[in-house]
Design a protein around this nucleic acid. Structure first.
Lengths: 100, 100
DNA sequence: TTGTTGGTTAAGCATATGCTTAAGTATTTC
DNA sequence: GAAATACTTAAGCATATGCTTAACCAACAA
C-alpha cells in the first residue's frame, strides 16, 4: 500500500479520485504516458486496495476505497503516538530529576 | 518519502526509531540481511528526510525526523478533507433535492 | 601492538518497476 | 454494417531496487 503510493503518477491519480470517481481515460488525461501504462498504475492501486473499479459498457469507472488510505494514516498515527509517549516518559523523568 | 516508506524493512526501522534513537548495528539486529544492506536502507531513509544520523567515535546513531513523517500524514489528511468536502456537497445536493 | 568492533566502499547481480509499441476486443455511434 | 471509442493483452526493454561478497578503515580494548 505504501508501495502503491510510492509512485508520483499514482499519487496524482489518487488525488484526482479523492475529488470523485473517474474513468480510465479521464485519469489518463494529465499524463504524457500511454494508456496501457496508466492502466498498469491503476492495477497496482487496485491490487493494493486503495481504489476499486467496475466496468459498465466499455468504460471502467474508478473510485477511492477510503478504508485503505485510512490504514496508512493509522500507521503514521501509531508512530507518532509511540513517539509522543516516549517524550512524555522523558518529561516525567526530567521532572523527577528536578524534584529529587 | 512515500518511496522510502514503501519497503517493509525500512518501515520496521522507522518503527524501531519511533521508540527512540538507535545505532546502525542495533537497527540491523532483527534482520537476516548483511550490514551494508541495512546501511543502504538507512541512506534511503536519510535522503528522504525521514531520519537523521550522526557518527560519534565509531558508532553512528540514528533518530527519527518527525517533521517528514508529518508531511506524509498531512497528504493523507488533505485527501480525506477533499473527500469529506465532496460528501458534504453531495449531502447538500440531496437535501436541496428533497426540499425542491 | 594486535585484535575486535562498528561501520564504509565498491563491484556485481537478480529481480522488480515503469514504460513502450503492436495488435486485439468489446461497445457505441453514425 | 462501418467507423470510432474505450479499453485490454502481450511482449519487450531500460533503469531502479535490494541484496550480496570482499576488501577496507577508524576507534577502542586487551
Amino acid at each position: 500500500m505504501f508501495q502503491a503510493l510510492a509512485d508520483p503518477s499514482r499519487r496524482i491519480m489518487v488525488e484526482r479520485l479523492s475529488r470523485g470517481p473517474a474513468s480510465v481515460s479521464e485519469l489518463a488525461k494529465p499524463f504524457a504516458m500511454s494508456l496501457p501504462a496508466v492502466v498498469q498504475h491503476l492495477q497496482v492501486l487496485e491490487a493494493s486496495g486503495l481504489i476499486r473499479s467496475e466496468k459498465i459498457g466499455r468504460v471502467r469507472t474508478c473510485h477511492i476505497e477510503w478504508a485503505a488510505l485510512q490504514t496508512a494514516e493509522e500507521w503514521m498515527l501509531e508512530r507518532r503516538k509511540t513517539w509522543e509517549h516516549r517524550l512524555d516518559r522523558l518529561g516525567d523523568f526530567l521532572a523527577d530529576q528536578e524534584k529529587g
